[in-house]
Design a protein around this nucleic acid. Structure first.
Lengths: 197, 197
DNA sequence: GTCTATACACCGATAGAC
DNA sequence: GTCTATCGGTGTATAGAC
């Protein structure tokens, strides 16, 4: 294969270059701060101080840019998750990631976009499956280490943790807080009992 | 107050009329099937067989239409939830509503839109708070009826139920199912023990 | 690599006739 | 109530010079 571009022979900029990263950074900021409606090639260019045309030199289409934005982010997150498996207290670290690196606004936007963009949907599926597998591995190891059994199987616990963390993050951004402390305490106590320290 | 329209003196169509409902129905279908990017006055008009101009006779702006669409829907949902309190097995019925009336695609779109549209955000907050209050009431009553205490306070249980139901609905639409059966069984067993029948 | 310039489509919203 | 017609703005994406 001499050419990477099978769909188009337009000249393209190299992935991973400075501009390439700057454009994805700018796109992420716009998506977080202003939402999907503001995520346009013009605004990205304006934000990082280049001309609009250049966006189409680094990304074939806007949809490509969006998929790449999610892909870059999910790779970083999966790497962080995998590293927790080697740490002393994996469950604490995974819960920290769930609570603090979950930007509900960004996730809402990506979810809505995933319905429309096939490539993004595939990336989202891959991310959910991989991160769940890592969490299940950590939970299973913790159960074995403490010689305990759980009423809820590891995969079920992983779903509860991630979905509650996301819901709390979303509601906090909206300004709703009722019941948050209650459930956080329960989850943290459970983790403490399973992964003492 | 002689005039309802304080922001604009443009002539407006009556809320609740046939066209008014048809437009909101069409808007909902578009949002569910094609996403926010396709939700335009032209497409709504085309879908229900009227001219685009008519949309602006019934709704002052597109944002107004979107807020009204969520409002109409959340009112119906809250009414259904309130009715469960008078039923024989409230917890079963609430869980049914959580699982089956939760359209993850629609909710993703509304959440993303809520970041941009202030009026929609206010409606979303109101809906979350009201529905949580109803759920807490049902759970508290069930605990008293069975003379039980829960490790997790009612508000925490409500958060777990709604957030897990939403996560499962979202993942099912994506085609991810690992762990779903595990957690569903646990929740359903818990409800059965609290609200036997 | 980066630019100017631009084709072309679609959008929100309105004026004013019938 | 519903229509035709339209304005001004913004979007994606490309051609081709430098």
């Amino acid at each position: 294969m001499k050419q990477d571009q099978v769909k188009s022979d337009r000249r393209m900029g190299p992935p991973g270059s400075e501009n390439w990263h700057a454009m994805l950074d700018g796109a992420e900021d716009i998506l977080r701060e202003e939402g999907h409606a503001a995520l346009t090639s013009r605004r990205i260019a304006e934000r990082i101080g280049v001309k609009q045309r250049l966006v189409y030199y680094y990304f074939r289409t806007m949809d490509d840019l969006i998929v790449e934005m999610f892909h870059r982010r999910s790779e970083m997150e999966l790497t962080r998750l995998r590293e927790t498996l080697k740490a002393e207290h994996p469950l604490h670290e995974i819960w920290e990631i769930c609570i603090h690196s979950t930007d509900a606004r960004l996730i809402s936007e990506f979810m809505a976009l995933a319905s429309r963009i096939d490539g993004l949907r595939a990336e989202v599926i891959r991310f959910i499956e991989e991160s769940r597998a890592i969490q299940v591995e950590a939970i299973t190891a913790a159960l074995e280490r403490t010689s305990r059994t759980s009423l809820i199987p590891p995969a079920g616990l992983a779903i509860v943790a991630t979905s509650v963390a996301l819901a709390i993050s979303r509601e906090e951004q909206l300004g709703v807080t009722s019941g948050h402390g209650d459930i956080m305490t329960v989850i943290e106590d459970f983790i403490a009992s399973l992964d003492p320290g």
